[in-house]
Design a protein around this nucleic acid. Structure first.
Length: 594
RNA sequence: GGCCCCGUAGUUCAAUGGAUAGAAUAGGAGUUUCCUAAACUCUAGAUACAGGUUCGAUUCCUGUCGGGGCCA
């Protein structure tokens, strides 16, 4: 039982003994605000009906009981209905000792629950951009958080590798490509294919303009432009399995996948299983038939199939066109079913932008109506868009921030910054390069993960990514500082990995630090409940900030009292450990030196 | 038009219904014979508006205004 649980249990006893009342509801403690003395605060307002006394008297009665009966409570004060508990120094020492000796600290007991998490899920007609970075970092980090909570996790992505968009790139490549390859052009495959997608759009627009100039109505021109007709024809060829078309499709997608792999590698994300739409786009029709048989879907006179979701206030939804072709929803129904068969998950999380809120609400509702056993375990991790100062990113307007470019810029900035500060003494070239990667990507990941996923956020290319203040590098710097201390402590032969002994007088800042470390598991649980890496990101910042204050306030290696010196080194080591754990959950590495 | 999300310092972000709304950044003032100043300390500055529920509302409810998204 940890400190908080001990106190809660004693508070329950207090209610029993002092007020003769058995508390059935869960009670929780809050951290005491800085301006008051104490570590934990118990809010008594909600229990006044039980105590039948004033807030102050109620708090004092419980405080008296705890002071008398609870070993860890040294004293208390009450302000209005807030009971602030002051703990004994030993309580803190015991607490830090528990953590030092706990090899599994940072990992919660294994649970018998299996998660599937889908993220990234790109199209193969263009490279990854800033929005994908938020998506990937969120998905990857959330998977880490779930694993640390003791769940089994399968990371999957579904690649949108078919359809009219890829045919557009293919048509443009045939027209303008002249046999170019990523090797011959010297650019990544995903970028190369993306260029042809852009080339298609350009040619398409020119053709529309020409047709309109000849007197055609614009709407009609958009449908009749020859290059578009070619792309549509190519899609038919592809669906018919035409060898030449399929070969070209495989070749170009192969280039894209190579490019993507490089990007994922640099991002530091990975997947356990890949799904391809070309293999799943026909799934789902069986489910539609199943729905018809069960009477939850219906057929219109023209043969199209619909679901009536008016009861759920969601309108009517098309599931099969009159010609029998599927829509996205059909496919997603089939994919969900398939994935359940493959992975046997209890919970399945889709990391997809909030512009698709409606789509997923409908999807989950349909699966429930079909009586699928897994439907209740589906969850849409709906994250907000990343806005630029100019507004939303639009590929047509060239306002997309490319993922590869951005990562490179971040690493360059890290290098410039580090050189300016003259901090590369003693680094060889390879180490320096590694450090720039660590810092540049750390800054980027932290920036994108520190914000509540649900909220839209602003990315200002010029000002957003800083290396000072509430940033990844600030936390990384704290870790580097501690590492330096530990290196010296090793030289001095200080044994800081052992439990602390002796009676020590510890400062408020040190108590705050121990309190923060002891909160780690709570934060880990909270982050999993809310599927929010931001919880961890902000926690890591609080911890680093508090440590830097401690570092400035007190001398660690220079402390004369040997026991106190060992304690401070040991505390530092545990802070470094928790920083490492937290940042690891975010997919951010922390350097030993910087 | 219908539905959904969001409005917090100049700016970017915090705050399970709890105390005097926290940080960062930009602004002002300081700290280096001492463990890494990518740091620390001090200072000034915000809940869009109007009601309601509550002992207590940034948080919950209603309306208004503003921003974004989805469906046609």
């Amino acid at each position: 039982m940890n400190l908080e649980e001990t106190i809660i249990s004693n508070i329950k006893d207090a209610f029993k003994k002092v007020f003769d009342h058995e508390l059935t509801e869960d009670i929780s403690l809050q951290p005491t605000r800085k301006e008051f003395e104490g570590t934990y605060t118990f809010v008594v307002f909600p229990f006044l009906r039980v105590t039948r006394k004033s807030p102050e008297e109620s708090g004092a009665a419980i405080g008296d009981y705890l002071k008398e009966n609870c070993d860890v409570v040294k004293d208390f004060n009450t302000v209005k209905g807030f009971l602030n508990l002051i703990l004994t120094d030993n309580a803190f020492i015991d607490n830090i000792n528990d953590i030092i000796s706990n090899e599994n600290f940072g990992t919660l007991p294994q649970k018998d629950e299996r998660f599937c998490i889908e993220y990234s899920s790109p199209n193969t007609n263009k490279p990854l951009h800033l929005g994908h970075l938020r998506n990937n970092f969120l998905g990857y980090s959330t998977a880490n958080i779930l694993k640390a909570n003791g769940y089994s996790v399968d990371k999957v992505q579904i690649i949108n590798d078919r359809g009219i968009h890829i045919c557009k790139s293919m048509v443009a490549y045939l027209k303008f490509g002249e046999g170019e390859t990523p090797q011959s052009a010297g650019i990544k495959g995903d970028h190369l294919v993306g260029n042809y997608y852009v080339a298609f759009d350009k040619a398409y627009k020119q053709e529309i303009a020409a047709l309109v100039a000849d007197g055609m109505d614009e709407e009609e021109a958009k449908k009749k432009a020859p290059i578009l007709l070619e792309a549509q024809e190519m899609l038919k060829q592809w669906e018919a399995g035409d060898k030449e078309t399929v070969d070209l499709w495989k070749k170009m997608n192969g280039w894209v996948y190579e490019g993507f792999e490089q990007t994922y590698d640099r991002m530091g994300v990975d997947f356990d299983k890949y799904y391809y739409e070309s293999e799943t786009y026909l799934l789902g029709k069986d489910l539609v038939n199943e729905g018809l048989e069960k009477g939850v879907f219906y057929k219109k006179d023209d043969g199209s199939v619909w679901a009536d979701l008016n009861e759920e206030k969601l309108d009517e939804k098309l599931l099969l066109r009159s010609d029998g072709t599927a829509v996205y929803m059909t496919q997603d129904l089939g994919t969900a079913d398939q994935r359940y068969k493959d992975l046997n998950f209890d919970k399945s999380i889709y990391v997809v932008g909030n512009e698709q809120d409606y789509h997923f609400t409908v999807l989950f509702t349909l699966l429930k109506k079909l009586g699928k056993p897994f439907a209740d375990g589906l969850y849409h991790l709906s994250y907000g868009m990343v806005d630029l100062p100019t507004g939303k990113m639009k590929s047509r307007e060239g306002t997309v921030v490319d993922a590869d470019d951005l990562m490179s810029e971040m690493v360059d900035t890290a290098r410039e910054h580090t050189e300016e500060l003259g901090k590369i003494d003693g680094f060889d070239d390879e180490q320096a390069k590694e450090l720039y990667d660590t810092l540049g990507l750390g800054a980027l990941k932290y920036f994108l993960l520190k914000v509540d996923p649900k909220k839209r956020m602003l990315f200002d290319p010029k000002e957003s990514i800083e290396f000072q203040g509430h940033t990844g590098p600030f936390i990384q710097y704290t870790h580097a500082r501690i590492s330096a201390i530990l290196r010296k402590a090793d030289q001095l032969g200080i044994e800081y990995q052992k439990n602390i002994s002796g009676s020590l007088e510890i400062s408020d800042t040190e108590k705050d630090l121990i309190y923060l470390i002891s909160e780690y598991h709570n934060k880990l649980k909270l982050a999993a409940e809310e599927l929010s890496p931001a919880v961890i990101a902000n926690y890591a910042y609080d911890l680093a900030k508090e440590y830097n204050r401690f570092y400035a306030e007190l001398s660690i290696l220079g402390e004369d009292d040997k026991d106190l010196r060992t304690f401070r080194v040991a505390l530092s080591a545990q802070i470094a450990r928790v920083i490492n754990l937290s940042m690891g959950l975010l997919g951010i590495t922390v350097p030993e030196r910087m």
